[in-house]
Amino acid sequence: MSDVLHRVRMTVNARAATIAVEARRTLAEALREDLGLTGTHLGCEHGVCGACTVLMDGAPVRACLVLAVQAEGAAIRTVEGLAAPDGTLHPLQQAFADHHALQCGYCTPGFLMLAMAMLEENPAMEEAEMVERLSSNLCRCTGYAGILAAVRSVMRR
């Protein structure tokens, strides 16, 4: 009974995707293992680090804390959807490079998706709110100053 496969239809980066997964498959695993979108990283797998952040119907969520079956009908956006089809980086990605907002890069996809939601929700965000929002994800390399500088640089002043 528990190895029953469930069909899940969702939109991933504006393309329709249908997968068949075990109920226990998390959304993060489904993106990586079933759809080959390994840009979404798994860090702690219990909702603390934010590395697996994706946008689910526009809102940032921790993909390790959502079951793939729960994404039925949802629109998911991952880091793979940020750059243009010709490979041109999204301004946010370019800003991360310019401001040394990454070193090892493990946390970067999560931070980028978190920052995308911030940018879309309120591109004139105050610094204090940026800090509060970014505090939900962990980076062990940069000390966060570069990440904050990168996000600040793309916000409308």
Partner: peptide, 25 residues
């Protein structure tokens, strides 16, 4: 299973081992 922000970590770490999960969403 409600919002899953406590239940999912408990499942991932196998602190919770239900045979059936009833999703309320």
């Amino acid at each position: 299973l409600a919002g899953g922000q406590s239940m999912m970590p408990m499942l991932n770490m196998r602190f919770a081992q239900p045979d059936h999960l009833v999703d309320l969403n």
